[in-house]
Design a protein around this nucleic acid. Structure first.
Length: 442
RNA sequence: GGCGCGUUCGUCUAGUGGUUAGGACACAGCCCUCUCAAGGCUGGUGCACGGGUUCGACUCCCGUACGCGCUGCCA
């Protein structure tokens, strides 16, 4: 038996999916998943119907990336369409007529307004609790406009009608709509429709307490797609913003969140978006990625950074990426981390060069080079043994050789395991790079 | 201005009258270690303020402050 739970995400096609909108969509989706209900996507394009498809594409892309697939809406259809407000004019006309016939509508300079009954309206919110709004004062609560003189519709009106028509059972939306809710309820009543359940979820703010807006870095889901974040990590992080499993877990698979998710566990206060924590959580997911997916995402990231992978053979790329597993948090860090595999003309880290390319280390590096040069097997185990033997012969600690060698072949003080990286690079490149360092380093 | 919501470490949160106020990110130190990560250990920082109620308040009530939202012929 199908559940009667129906929720919707109703974005305006702005050309990007806001991180707060994504979280609202996520909570709706989770609620639907939890109850075996239906998740509807509706595009609220009352105002700017022109480039709707194009502007909505970014929203589809963001939702799909996060795995928030809708059961009804654009592309997938459904029994309550169309799912674009710009195509629902007849429905709105019909409802307007109904209100007009009942005497709820009056004209004001060409615009149409809904006459408020002017009473107290109790909003019984699933997150915020019961709230009493006093709408009796016309000065503070003017009659809302439902239609502009040019015939276009106002959000409050069409939003309510669509929720009625689409049989939405739970309206889960941002807290910025809480104060609008009593007006909406007046409309439901005037239309003789039952009111849905409401749940207003707290807003996501910037570090400085301001509302995240389009201009803020990281306010768009697209930002995380481009920066090589993992959708499951972003989704997990978003779940933790305003909701908690209450058992101290942070990293939770979505399959485990679904049965746990409930509106009454949604926090009432605003949340500040913390990029650091997302970064950490992404690393948690990145570290346990299956090899094939890591390889795929790694290659994508390198190509996006301008690395010409076509100039290298597949085994080499594979081996190179293998040494990076578990080392990066987001894939946009990859090029900086292992770009040396694909570029012989890298620069040396200045601090590192000052510290390790010293006259004292010069002969040591030569010793390493010579030891490596006579090796037949150029694998990690052999390289490690050789380097350590060389250190012992010189009467110094392996570290005294390791650091200059790493800098010489990678240009950096940090990176993948030295012995493995040397193996991947291969004898020819390793020797050439040490030679280059010996020239430049003096 | 009016109305509404909110306020536990810097941040996300647990906590529903009696707790050494817990966890996580970030930060610092130590351990491990071929670097960097990861991992382990340790540490510091918190109940906005003022009144009540109560034997006892982070928890309940009132007020103040601060933040946010709404107050559009934006959504």
């Amino acid at each position: 038996m199908a559940s009667q739970i129906r929720v919707r995400f109703a974005p305006s096609p702005t050309g990007y999916l806001h991180i707060g909108g994504a979280r609202t969509a996520l909570f709706n989706w989770l609620f639907a998943q939890h109850h075996g209900g239906t998740f509807v996507l509706r595009v609220e394009d009352t105002d700017r119907a022109r480039n709707t498809e194009e502007a909505a594409a970014a929203i589809y892309e963001g939702l799909q990336w996060l795995g928030l697939n809708w059961d009804e809406g654009p592309h997938v259809g459904g029994d309550f369409g169309p799912y674009f407000q710009s195509q629902r004019n007849e429905i709105y006309e019909r409802y307007l007529k109904k209100l007009q016939d009942a005497g709820h509508i009056f004209e004001d300079q060409g615009a149409l307004r809904f006459r408020s009954p002017r009473e107290h309206v109790i909003v019984d919110d699933l997150v915020c609790g019961k709230i009493d709004f006093d709408l009796s004062n016309e000065q503070t609560h003017p009659d809302m406009t439902v239609r502009r003189p040019d015939g276009s519709w106002i959000f409050h009106f069409v939003n309510v009608i669509d929720d009625i028509e689409m049989k939405i059972s739970h309206v889960i939306r941002g807290e910025d709509h809480l104060s609008n809710t009593p007006k909406h309820i007046e409309l439901y009543r005037a239309l003789g429709a039952g009111t849905p359940h409401f749940a207003h979820i707290p807003l996501i703010l910037n570090r400085d307490g301001s509302k995240m807006s389009k201009r803020d870095q990281g306010a768009s889901v697209d930002y995380y797609i481009k920066r090589g974040f993992l959708p499951e990590a972003v989704r997990n992080y978003l779940c933790l913003l305003g909701w908690s499993p209450k058992d101290n877990r942070e990293k939770i698979p979505i399959e485990e969140i679904i049965p746990l998710f409930d509106l009454n566990k949604v926090v009432r206060s605003h949340a500040t978006f913390d990029p650091d924590k997302l970064h950490w959580l992404n690393g948690e997911y990145a570290r346990e990625l299956p090899d094939d997916r890591f390889q795929q995402l790694g290659r994508n990231a390198l190509r996006a950074s301008g690395v010409k992978l076509e100039n290298f053979c597949d085994d080499y790329i594979r081996a190179a990426l293998e040494t990076c597993k578990g080392k990066i948090n987001t894939f946009d860090e990859l090029a900086a981390y292992c770009g040396f595999y694909f570029d012989d003309n890298f620069n040396y880290n200045p601090e590192g060069a000052a510290k390790h390319f010293t006259s004292e280390n010069q002969p040591r590096l030569v010793a390493v080079r010579d030891a490596f040069a006579v090796l037949d097997k150029f694998d990690a185990a052999e390289l490690e043994a050789t380097l350590k033997a060389t250190a012992a012969r010189l009467g110094i600690k392996p570290a005294a050789l390791i650091h200059p060698t790493r800098l010489a072949v990678t240009g950096s003080n940090a990176g993948p395991s030295l012995y493995h990286l040397l193996e991947v690079l291969g004898k020819e490149k390793v020797l050439a790079r040490i030679d280059r360092a010996l020239t430049i380093g003096r």
